[in-house]
Each structure stands twice: as C-alpha cells, then as structure tokens.
C-alpha cells in the first residue's frame, strides 16, 4: 500500500478552508488566550516566587516541596476527596431518579421539569445562604422535620462531623442540570426496545435494568465526568460556609478555597499556581481513569 499523499487544495478549496478557519477563529482565539495561556503561565509560575507586583523569581520545585509538608494541603485534599466521593454518586442517583420521574407522561410535566431545573440557575451564594437557613440546628426546616421523627438533628455547619454532609446536601440543590441531561438520554431510548422487553415479559425493573440503564451509560459517563470535575472545584458554598479557614475545625476547607486563599488572601501566586497545577493533574488522572473503565460498562452503538 503506497503512502497517502496530501492532496493539494484547489483555489476554491483554499478559500473554503480560509472561511472555515475564520469561522472558528474566535473560538480558537478564546481557547488560546483564556485557557491555553493561563495553563502555560500557571505552570511556569508554579516554579517561581511571585507576589503579583514584583517579577516572578525562579525557585525550582520549592513550591511543590512546600505543598508536600503543608498540612492544610492534605486537609483540603481529604475534604475535597470526601466531598467528591459522596456528592457525585448521590447526585447521579438522585438526578437519574428525578429524570425517570420527569420522563413520565403526566399533566403539567413541563412545569415540573422547569421547577426542578430552576435551582441550577440560582446564584450559588444565594443558594448557600438559603441552605444555611434550612440547616440551622434549632429552627431550620430540615432539623424540624427530623425532630418530628423523634430524633435530634445534627448541628450541620457548626459541627465538624456534619459540616461536609451539609455541603453534600447543598450540592444536591443543583442536580437539575444533570437531570435534564439524563432526561434527554431517556428520550433517545427507542420505545420499540422497551415494548419488545415488555412483550418478552420484563417488568418495570427488568426494563430499567436491562434496557434503559445500559442504553443510558454514555449519559451516565458524561454526568460522572462532569460531576467529578465540578466536585473537585467546589468553591462558592465552601467559602460562604467556612471562609478561608474552613470552619468549623477546618472541616469545610476545600481545595479550591485553599488555592483562593493562597492567591488572593496571602498573594502567594507561585504557591497557588503549584496547588492549581496539582489539582489540574489530579482531575486529569481521575478523568483518564474513568475513561479507562468505559469498555467494561459503557454501551457503544456499533
């Protein structure tokens, strides 16, 4: 087999290619300026001592060595990992259940779908303040409901044992976006397959387990990856609840808050860049690991 030869473009082809490039140029420009450059700059700055107003000074791997011995980094990493490991699966299950409910042909379904999506467009800080009120230990709605069962509700954001759980509950406020994506996926599943399964005697659970769920795995993969990325980057809620020290007891100090405080409270941009780069690589590794497992569980149409 001979080598493929690059075909010369005709004058018309060149003009069309130029027009195509012109169309995508704004996007490419934004990608390079707002994503590419910051990544490259942060990588460089992570090897420097940089406080914004004086030129960066090369310090080699000092910032990474400092990270290794910084207990706040490990605490923030543990908190973020705990949050991601619980908020992502709980959010996935809840959004899938909601999508299944919102996929039923009932009256006013459009209104229901809108209502469940609406929290996703509420500013995160406002949503967090609402949850501070809902999770107030003595008179908050959630503990009032719990008390009806005869149990004492926890102190949520005042108790280091429960504060991360409070943030996880808060994260469920925004499942509307994932729900909408699941809903779109559910509506792509051919009705004929579900009918065939019914004719073969499958019940509701059987149809879900053996038809819906396998066909929905590409959407689950998408929501899983996006969920993991976002969960490692939780910031607004953690900042409102715990400030830069992650109160109570450092239990809400998330990794993004750590980066923020290094950069904008202490103006240690070099150290913050190193922290950001490590987060970037960690998320990249986790995402790659997830994609590495897709052959085993994600359905791909031939």
């Amino acid at each position: 087999m001979g080598r493929l030869r690059r075909r010369r473009l005709s004058p018309l082809g060149r003009r069309q290619a130029a027009a195509g490039l012109l169309f995508v140029a704004p996007w490419l420009l934004a990608l390079v300026v707002f994503h590419g450059y910051p990544i490259v700059a942060a990588t460089y700055l992570s090897f420097t001592d940089y406080t914004v107003l004086t030129p960066p000074e090369w310090v080699g791997t000092d910032n990474y060595v400092k990270m290794w011995g910084d207990s706040a980094v490990w605490r923030a990493a543990r908190n973020s990992l705990f949050y991601a490991l619980l908020s992502v699966p709980i959010g996935l299950v809840l959004s899938l259940v909601l999508a299944l409910l919102l996929n039923r042909p009932v009256r006013g379904i459009g209104i229901h779908r809108t209502l469940f999506y609406m929290p996703s467009v509420v500013p995160p800080v406002a949503g967090t303040i609402v949850f501070l009120l809902l999770l107030e230990p003595r008179s908050g709605l959630l503990n009032t409901v719990i008390e009806v069962t005869g149990l004492d509700g926890p102190a949520w954001f005042l108790d280091p044992q429960w504060s991360k759980w409070g943030l996880i509950v808060l994260s469920l406020w925004g499942v509307g976006a994932a729900t909408l994506i699941f809903l779109a996926g559910l509506q792509e599943i051919p009705a004929s397959l579900l009918e065939a399964a019914s004719i073969d005697g499958a019940g509701a659970w059987g149809r879900f387990r053996h038809v819906t769920l396998p066909l929905l795995t590409p959407v689950i993969l998408f929501n899983l990856v996006i969920g993991v990325i976002y969960s490692f980057q939780v910031f607004d809620a953690a900042m409102v609840v715990g400030g830069t020290t992650g109160e109570p007891g450092g239990s809400t100090l998330m990794y993004m808050v750590l980066i923020y405080r290094s950069a904008f409270s202490y103006f240690d941009m070099g150290y913050a860049s190193a922290q950001a780069l490590v987060l970037f690589l960690a998320i990249l590794a986790v995402t790659a690991a997830i994609f590495g497992t897709t052959r085993r569980w994600v359905y791909e149409e031939a």
Binding site: I129, L132, L133, L135, E136, P137, R138, S139, G140, A155, F157, L158, D159, V240
Partner: peptide
C-alpha cells in the same frame, strides 16, 4: 453555638438567628 447566636458579635448571624 447550636443553642443560639451567642458568638455573632451582636449581629444577626449567617443562619439568620
């Protein structure tokens, strides 16, 4: 702290207490 707003410095606290 869970009992009431004793540490908010005399202001309504973050939980609206």
């Amino acid at each position: 702290q869970a009992s009431g707003n004793y540490t908010g410095g005399g202001y309504v606290d973050g939980s609206g207490r």
